[in-house]
Design a protein around this nucleic acid. Structure first.
Lengths: 156, 156
DNA sequence: GTCATATAGTTAAACAAGTGAACTATTAAA
DNA sequence: TTTAATAGTTCACTTGTTTAACTATATGAC
């Protein structure tokens, strides 16, 4: 009984998550003139959201090693979308910021995503959206706690 | 007004999707004795679900090129989780099936996932789960149609 | 029946993302 | 001041991906 629902949930979640991911990938590809990978977009998003950030902060946010961030950052710098700036108080630290071009590309991506999601929203009842948001908020809290617990051992 | 909701939806969805993905990754890593990547797990899942499959079918299901499937398959064969079997009617075709070992590892993964999701379920109202399922079903249909439209040009 | 074409799958080169370990600087602490 | 810790990079290796060239088999036009 309960097993059936679990299975259904997993299956349906996986299919939607796959479809959303693919859709987002297609959105980031080509249409804007610049190709952005999922990770590159997430990096721009983090910096836009939290302001100038360090590799360490990005690594913690994405739950990957710092060397992985270095690689992504190098590619974004090649694309002239972000810049490095050394902290003068602590000269080990490097702050990463968006260039004007980075801001521009990021904005174009956001517009695309928002337009897409906006078109979805019209097909749902306000009540459905409300409940969706609440469920996800709850889910997020549960997951965050669990992931923190699990990755604590693996963290450096 | 509507803009605000779109933004919230995107943000919340992205955070949950990230958390779920990381959580699943951690689940597949080590705990079972065998490491499975997301793609390897999805491949086992597809074969388990649809029975002996071809590279072409997997490539279509995952929306990647066939050469990407070849690489994943080779690694799963190295791990002795699947086998190739030539079709005798059409000798171009190769069917991929799970080995007993593959079945065993896959089952262990599923059990882990179901246990996890089962533990989530208890924290939600039946009504919430019902609506969640319905919303996702609706979302899936919308996305499937859109992705089909978008990738039609890109398909080979 | 034979020749052109389509289909199934592999291979190889190149790129993006990731890990792990060794490394350079710089700062903090004993 | 010598030792620790921290921030970041580099390098070798793995996985997943695309593109393009390739092999082998099947289909179809004539």
């Amino acid at each position: 009984m309960d097993n059936k629902i679990t299975e259904k949930l997993v299956e349906r979640y996986e299919r939607v998550q796959f479809a959303v991911h693919k859709k987002a990938q297609l959105l980031m590809r080509g249409e804007i003139g610049e190709e952005l990978t999922t990770e590159q977009h997430a990096t721009l998003r983090h910096i836009k959201h939290f302001g100038p950030s360090t590799s360490t902060q990005l690594a913690e946010a994405f739950l990957v090693k710092k060397s992985a961030i270095t690689a992504i950052i190098n590619r974004l710098i090649d694309k002239k979308m972000i810049t490095r700036r050394r902290d003068q108080n602590d000269r080990r630290v490097i702050y990463l910021s968006l260039t004007d071009y980075g801001e521009e590309i990021y904005k174009q991506c956001e517009d695309k995503i928002h337009a897409l999601v906006g078109s979805f929203i019209t097909q749902f009842e306000p009540k459905e959206i409300e409940l969706f948001l609440n469920t996800f908020e709850k889910l997020e809290k549960i997951l965050d706690k669990q992931i923190l617990d699990m990755s604590e051992g693996a963290e450096k």
